[in-house]
Amino acid sequence: MSDEMNRVIESTEHAHERVIGLVERLTEVARPGAVFGEPMTAGANTVVTASEVFVAMGYGFGIGGGRPQQEEETGTQSEIHGGKVPSGYGGGGGGGGSSKGRPVAVITLNPEGVRIEPVLDLTKIGLAILMVLGSLLVMAGRLRRQA
């Protein structure tokens, strides 16, 4: 195997190891500590935030190469590269991911008891209302055209 091919494989393995390390770190998000924040105390109240966390990622890579072929093997007439079909090795890869977090509730502890207050994401709700209203308007328009 040529030095060139060895270099390609080496660099690909290095990249692969680094990405595996990243995927391993996904497990850290699966801990309850990623969802519940550190308790904060103010007077007699202790407050803990609770959030939803979502992380996804993926990657892929590939390497390939070709050996030089003589004119006789290919059956083609080539004037360039001294009558050899050019050869080489190469590799490539790519990856992507997404992560999001959203507060869900606030837990308050005090001598009176425990209180859980939900957190409303008004932007998400507003967008959902707009989408539903838009769909209904389109539907109503079609119905009117049919009538």
Binding site: P32, F36, S51, E52, V53, F54, G95, V104
Partner: peptide
């Protein structure tokens, strides 16, 4: 790859 969805 992988995904993790964690919610309280």
């Amino acid at each position: 790859g992988g995904l993790v969805w964690n919610r309280p």
